[in-house]
């Protein structure tokens, strides 16, 4: 069995915390917080990503995310979306820690809005600052095994390479790199970004990833709640297939039923 499969067969464990589901969902882009909450139930996820923003002072009675999704029931994973420097990321997550009281966070330091690729130089710097400040860092990163290793060595709690650009729904563009990262890592590897449909999530899990994080694939589906449930099954199916160990690929057919003449019914006209 591959090394990553031995890590934990049944549960996702990040920074010593156990999660029933290997699916983590985002909470952006839903039509309403209610739809978001319904999709969360359908997905079976127990961890969600959230963003940190200024409260609307002109309308303090505006509904808040926590009115619909209970932080006592689900693990909120605050992100650093919108931060372009390590200092901004640390400042944002310190506020998140005070708002939520937990230290498990998602670091993402983005670059060009066109592709939203992680700025790895700044991500590395921010990760170090956060770890030094006592955070458990789940880090969004490129699918570069070299950077992934550096982030793990630095002490990140989970490595979260992109499958494809954020919100693109293109699926895993470089399965070979994801596989390299899975094989070398002793902390959880979670594909974050790029999943478009259930087969993409299953593929991530078949490659041996420990989990999948997605937002747009569910939120932008025609029926987000149904897609959330599809993703739940996809992640379970992909994980089970990985643990089962797939058959070898062959270039030619091998029959599933015996082809020998013996035992076959026949008619007088049969050749």
């Amino acid at each position: 069995m591959p090394k990553s499969a031995e890590k934990n067969i049944n549960k996702l464990v990040v920074a010593g915390r156990e999660f029933e589901s290997r699916l983590i969902i985002g909470t952006g882009k839903y039509k309403t917080y209610q739809e978001n909450a319904d999709a969360l139930v359908a997905s079976g996820a127990d961890m969600i990503t959230v963003a940190v923003r200024r409260v609307n002072l002109s309308n303090p009675a505006e509904p808040m995310l926590v009115d619909f999704i209970d932080p006592k029931k689900y693990t909120f994973l605050p992100n650093t979306a919108g931060c372009f420097t390590g200092e901004d990321a640390v400042r944002t997550l310190r506020l998140a820690r005070e708002a939520g009281g937990w230290d498990l966070v998602k670091l993402e330091v983005l670059s060009d809005p066109k592709h939203l690729y992680p700025d790895m130089e700044e991500t590395m710097r921010a990760a170090k600052m956060l770890i030094d400040d006592g955070f458990e860092v789940m880090v969004y990163c490129t699918d570069d095994p070299v950077f992934a290793k550096k982030l793990e060595d630095m002490g990140c709690a989970a490595i979260m390479p992109l499958g494809a650009p954020i919100g693109s729904g293109l699926g895993i563009q470089n399965p070979l790199n994801i596989q390299f990262i899975v094989e070398q890592s002793s902390v959880p590897v979670i594909v974050d970004a790029g999943v478009g449909t259930a087969s993409d999530a299953a593929m991530a899990m078949e490659l041996g990833c420990d989990g999948v994080l997605m937002n747009t694939a569910i939120a932008a589906a025609q029926d987000p709640i149904r897609m959330a449930e599809a993703m739940k099954h996809a992640v379970i199916a992909g994980r089970e297939a990985f643990l089962a160990g797939r058959m070898d690929k062959k270039h030619y057919a091998t029959p599933s039923s015996p082809l020998a003449k013996e035992g076959m019914i026949s008619t007088p006209d049969s050749p």
Binding site: G26, A51, L65, L95, G100
Partner: peptide, 29 residues
């Protein structure tokens, strides 16, 4: 630029010119 712990909300007295950020969680990926 410094966190005000929730436990000190009742005792932390503000000064003229203070710059405050008040945040909450919103949907995000």
């Amino acid at each position: 630029m410094e966190i005000v712990p929730k436990s000190t909300f009742d005792s932390a007295v503000l000064s003229d010119g203070d710059r405050l950020e008040i945040i909450h969680f919103i949907g995000g990926g």
